[in-house]
C-alpha cells in the first residue's frame, strides 16, 4: 500500500515542479522534462516493465496538465521507459556515463515520437523547425540537469561512499522488489 502512494505522490510532486518552478527556468520556451528524466531514472533502476508503467502514468498526468491530447505523453513516456529498460539489460556499463547516455537517447526518442504523432494527428500544423528546435533544446537541457544530478550523486558517493552507496542500494532494492 505504501509504495503506490509514494509512486503517485512522487509523480504529483514532479509535475507540480514542472508546472510551477520550471517555466521560470525556460530557455526559448523550453524547459527540462522532469517526467522524462524520472522515467529514464526509474527504468534504469527498476527495468523495462516497471519503467514503462511509471512512464505511462507520469505521461498521462503530464497530458492532463498540458494542452496536448490525453495519451500522447502517456504513450511516449511509457515507450521511452520500456526502451531504456531494454537498454539497461543490454549494456553492461554501470558507470555514471550510462544514465547520461540514457537521458540523451531518451530525450531524442521523446522528440522523435512526438514528431511522428503530431505529423499523423495534425499534418503540417507543426513545422520541422519547431520539432528540431524543441528536441535540441530539450535534450540539451535534460542532459545538463541529468549530468548535474548524476555528478552530484557520484561526488557524494565518493565522499561518503558508505552512506550514499548504502542508501542507493537500499533504494534500488526497494524499488526493484516493490514496484
Amino acid at each position: 500500500m505504501f509504495f503506490p502512494i509514494l509512486f503517485v505522490f512522487t509523480a504529483i510532486i514532479l509535475l507540480i515542479i514542472q508546472t510551477t518552478i520550471f517555466p521560470r527556468l525556460s530557455l526559448g520556451g523550453v524547459r527540462p522534462d522532469l517526467a522524462l528524466l524520472a522515467t529514464v531514472g526509474y527504468s534504469l533502476v527498476a527495468g523495462r516493465q516497471k519503467g514503462m508503467s511509471f512512464g505511462f502514468f507520469l505521461g498521462l498526468l503530464q497530458d492532463v496538465l498540458s494542452g496536448g491530447l490525453l495519451g500522447t505523453n502517456g504513450f511516449i513516456k511509457g515507450f521511452v521507459g520500456y526502451v531504456v529498460g531494454v537498454f539497461k539489460q543490454q549494456v553492461a556499463d554501470r558507470s555514471l556515463f550510462f544514465p547520461t547516455l540514457a537521458i540523451f537517447f531518451g530525450s531524442l526518442l521523446n522528440g522523435a515520437l512526438y514528431f511522428l504523432i503530431a505529423r499523423v494527428l495534425y499534418a503540417d500544423k507543426y513545422s520541422w523547425w519547431f520539432f528540431i528546435r524543441t528536441t535540441a533544446l530539450e535534450t540539451g537541457y535534460n542532459l545538463a540537469l541529468g549530468v548535474i544530478v548524476t555528478g552530484a550523486i557520484g561526488i557524494a558517493s565518493r565522499r561518503k561512499s558508505g552512506l550514499v552507496n548504502q542508501l542507493l542500494k537500499k533504494m534500488t532494492v526497494l524499488i526493484s522488489n516493490r514496484a
Binding site: 509535475l15 514542472q18 508546472t19 510551477t20 517555466p23 520556451g29 523550453v30 524547459r31 522534462d33 517526467a35 503530464q62 497530458d63 496538465l65 498540458s66 494542452g67 496536448g68 500522447t72 505523453n73 512526438y114 503530431a118 524543441t134 533544446l137 530539450e138
Partner: peptide, 13 residues
Amino acid sequence: VGIDSSNWSRAIF
C-alpha cells in the same frame, strides 16, 4: 493558475 507541463504545446489553466 497553471502553465503547460509539456514543451510541445502552449496552454494555460
